[in-house]
Amino acid sequence: MDTILELRDVQKHFRRPDGVVQAMDGVSLRIGAGEFVAVQGPSGSGKTTLLMAAGVLMQPDSGVVVIAGEEPYKLSAEQRAGFRAAHIGFVFQQFHLVHYLNVLDNVLTAALALPADDAEERARGLIERFGLASRAGHVPSELSIGERQRAALARALLNRPKLLLADEPTGNLDEENGRLVLDCLAGFAKDGGAVLLVTHDPKAAGFSHRALRMENGKLAAG
């Protein structure tokens, strides 16, 4: 099984007025192609920090991050952006759709970083797959919460990433929509992608192949 994401002894601390917070404390993790890993843990345990470090958005203090055989933190800032576009898809709790763009254009924002002739065709395919075909011309404020998260999922998948990172994707969803999203993540893994899901929702772990637990910046088997 090819390793898609590997973290070795990653440290990350933050300085705050009330002292130093060790958000990641010697985190090591390996996720292979086709694997769906869920990390559970209470709020403030460092899950989002882990996700940012894995997502090439936050340079760790120490340790190694390898994604698809490359060490992205050794690249320049520009190259790192390109690397994210090519390899990583993000799904957030707050969806982070662009308010003024309709569903199709929102999905296509992923193509801003990685232009391709067939981007629109793929975007329409994803929209269809997520049952949003009739909503393609609507802006986020006109969508239901579930539709918004599916649009965000479509955007995350547009560039055919190897790694999908999801931060509390079900946090704002009802059970049915939450299940839909988790099914989709599982489907992505089944198709050969690697999924890292961080959540404090115990039910979400049920969809994963492997559940880990995070506490005070330390990762342990669930």
């Binding site: 997502g55 958005l57 800032a77 520009e78 952006a81 390109g82 690397f83 994210r84 576009a85 090519a86 993000f90 957030f92 707050q94 982070h96 759709l97 662009v98 308010h99 924002t109 992923a110 801003l112 970083a113 990685l114 955007r155 560039n159």
Partner: peptide, 16 residues
């Protein structure tokens, strides 16, 4: 801000 953050996460360059 949110839009900028997500676009950057998607790989959009600072120059863009």
């Amino acid at each position: 801000r949110g839009e900028i953050g997500v676009l950057r996460a998607l790989g959009v360059r600072a120059r863009q």
